[in-house]
Simulated scan of single mutants.
Amino acid sequence: MNSRALQLKAFDRLLTIMDELREQCPWDKKQTMQTLRHLTIEETYELGDAILEDDLVEVKKELGDVLLHIVFYSKIGSETNDFDIADVCNSICEKLINRHPHIYGDVTVKDEEEVKRNWENIKLKEGKKSVLEGVPKGLPALVKANRVQDKVAGVGFDWEKPEQVFEKVQEELSELQSEIKSGNADKMEAEFGDVLFSMINYARFLNVNPENALERTNKKFIGRFQYLESKAKEAGKSLKDMTLGEMDVFWEEAKSALERPS
């Protein structure tokens, strides 16, 4: 790994390049925080994909793209004298020091859960009106549910045992079944949401990341379905003309073919 001096030199190089691009490149000159926003979100998702694929070469590249955006926003902020990259760095440093009194103060903690509880309590002391203030409104619903549950658990609002959460899942499933029988579409949607919320909560108790788990299943399904498509094509058949039974033969074949250890 590079020394601290080389790391700082590399970061200084990036800042210099950003200055040059902002001054000389027609595209970079035109960008604002608003025009960069959707690109930043896209880069963040690409980083997430690389992490899920455990592709460390891609993780390195995508981290660079995200870092570029951080530097870009900071450059724009410096042009209006609102903040620069030093302010950004110092701001997060101060936050980390303040929220880790067990490292930078005289507080003693026994485990990770106590650190998380302290973190949320410190945020409230900093002026937050709710522990949920930090959950972005634009998060995908599944990720948002997970963050909401994690944050309220940080201040002690939580179940005690996984068995209790599983009982809640079963209760919500039962309520969903009742609404399905009633045929009320609005109530069905509400109860379906409760089922999903309780399942996400249960995942947390099992130390399973629900977003990662669902994406893993997405990838597995896509792989199997594309195998089915390719096999149907090899056989000169169109999926829309095949019976479910015929498709199921290829589907079962895909399960064994794609999950066979290398």
Rank of each mutant, 00 (worst) to 15 (best):
V169Q: 00
E234L: 14
A203R: 02
E191K: 00
R216N: 12
M199E: 07
M247I: 05
T44Y: 02
I180F: 08
K123Q: 13
I17K: 12
A213R: 06
D54V: 13
L56G: 11
G193N: 12
E133P: 03
L214C: 11
G223P: 04
I51C: 07
A5D: 15
N81S: 14
A10H: 12
V115M: 08
M242F: 05
L14F: 07
Q34D: 02
R204C: 08
C93N: 08
S238V: 10
D84T: 04
I51F: 07
E94L: 09
Q149D: 11
K219A: 13
G236N: 04
N218H: 10
G183K: 02
N118E: 09
G245R: 03
V57E: 14
L214P: 07
M188Y: 04
S182V: 09
K30I: 00
L15W: 06
L52A: 11
F11N: 04
R216P: 07
P162N: 06
E175Y: 04
N184D: 11
E167M: 11
L139G: 06
K29I: 01
L132R: 04
H100E: 14
T16W: 11
T80D: 13
S256M: 06
A10W: 09
Q31H: 00
V165Y: 02
V249G: 02
F205A: 06
K129N: 14
Y202I: 03
C93Y: 07
K233I: 08
K168A: 15
A254P: 00
K61P: 01
P26G: 05
T80R: 15
V249F: 03
L173A: 13
L63C: 15
D194C: 02
S74W: 00
I180N: 05
S182L: 09
N118D: 12
E259H: 08
K9D: 13
V165F: 03
T44R: 00
L6A: 15
D65C: 00
R37D: 00
R204M: 08
V208T: 11
R147I: 10
A10Y: 10
L63D: 01
I97H: 09
A190Y: 09
V195M: 03
A141F: 11
Y227T: 00
A232M: 11
E160A: 11
V66P: 00
G154F: 01
T44S: 09
